[in-house]
Amino acid sequence: MYELIEHTADVGLRVSAADLDELFSDAARGLFSILVEDLAAVRPDRRLVFELQSADTESLLIDWLNELVYVFSTQHVLLSRFDVQVQGARLRAEATGERFDPQRHHLGPEIKAVTYHGLTLTRTAQGYVAEVILDV
């Protein structure tokens, strides 16, 4: 589950999930829900595979989201479905989506980057909660 949170200059994302796989997957959907107005209308025409390794799980979350910003920025692909496996500071993910089509997709603000500022990733009784701030 993800929700947008208020931030003066930028946009924040709060994600809660039962486990890290779901947390990373929901964070990715949260990111694309900012990039495109109707995420549900994105068709699963293309499949992309990601493998990432970072210093720790928190950095991995930032690197993962920045990876998606980079993919959208260079390939103009909107992704809506994610299957993510996180192990410690490593990640393997498959994502489906389609190329941005100005006729059918309405884009939201441009995301410059995902920042470390105010980054939290905590364990709760129900699983995990994370907060990140995006520079838009």
């Binding site: 947008l4 949170i5 208020e6 931030h7 003066t8 200059a9 930028d10 946009v11 603000p109 838009v136």
Partner: peptide, 8 residues
């Protein structure tokens, strides 16, 4: 300088 968040 912004005085209000984008969401608001």
């Amino acid at each position: 300088g912004r005085a209000m968040s984008r969401t608001r």
